[in-house]
Amino acid sequence: MEQKEIKPLSKIRSGEKAKLVNIEAGRGLNNRLASMGLVSDVEISVVSNSHPGPFVINVKGSKVMLGRGMANKIMVSGCDNEKDNSGSGR
């Protein structure tokens, strides 16, 4: 698989998917996000990214809202063009 460019989640458009690389935040926030399923390599699909409105993602089957500031701290690698079906666990 080719190496994808790493960019903040906020750059991913509505309807696209991305893989989480890391989160540039403090321990508390990192842990909270991890407990909600945001760990390395998890597939995130962006449900809604409309400036300046809600930033909503779908991770492991549940919808999670994020502040825009946080979406800037979550680094992902895009997998928008890939036709992969190994991403989800079920």
Binding site: N30, G37, S40, G89
Partner: peptide, 21 residues
């Protein structure tokens, strides 16, 4: 290359994924 606690959270999710698959 990351905080052990975050890495461990990832492993737990891995275990769950395995069980669910």
């Amino acid at each position: 290359g990351e905080n052990p606690e975050i890495y461990m959270a990832g492993r737990r999710y891995g275990y769950i994924s395995g069980a669910c698959q």
